[in-house]
């Protein structure tokens, strides 16, 4: 539906604005690194298309019940009892928020 596409775009913009308000987005070089990490390293468990593997799929539909902050928290601290490790040693809060917002917006790495 064209309507839902526009709605999705608006959501993307809104989310990135929220993200900008909370913390500034990482610079372009860092964004590139984060995208690469998302595709290849997150992708080794969640699939390079984020459609799932040993770890769950990370498409907007799976993340709809979680806020950007909750997703970012999981990225940084992992999920005890599952194979999801804490990425805090490698990612700042800003990095994690940016990734979380992108995941929720459905951006393909």
């Amino acid at each position: 539906m064209p309507g839902s596409k526009i709605f999705r775009r608006i959501t993307v913009i809104a989310l990135s604005l929220i993200c900008l308000e909370v913390t500034a987005a990482p610079d372009l070089q860092r964004q590139k690194e984060l995208n690469y990490l998302l595709k290849h390293d997150c992708g080794s468990c969640h699939g390079m298309r984020l459609e799932g593997g040993l770890g769950p799929a990370l498409k907007p539909v799976q993340l709809q019940f979680y806020s950007v902050e909750q997703v970012a928290f999981t990225i940084l601290h992992g999920r005890p009892g599952t194979p999801m490790p804490p990425w805090q040693p490698f990612l700042s809060e800003q990095d994690a928020n940016w990734l979380a917002a992108r995941l929720k917006a459905g951006v393909r790495p």
Binding site: S44, G78, P83, P85, P86
Partner: peptide, 14 residues
Amino acid sequence: HYGKGEQKLPVYKM
């Protein structure tokens, strides 16, 4: 129990 008593390190790839 090969790692008994040791802190488990995070696993970033299986």
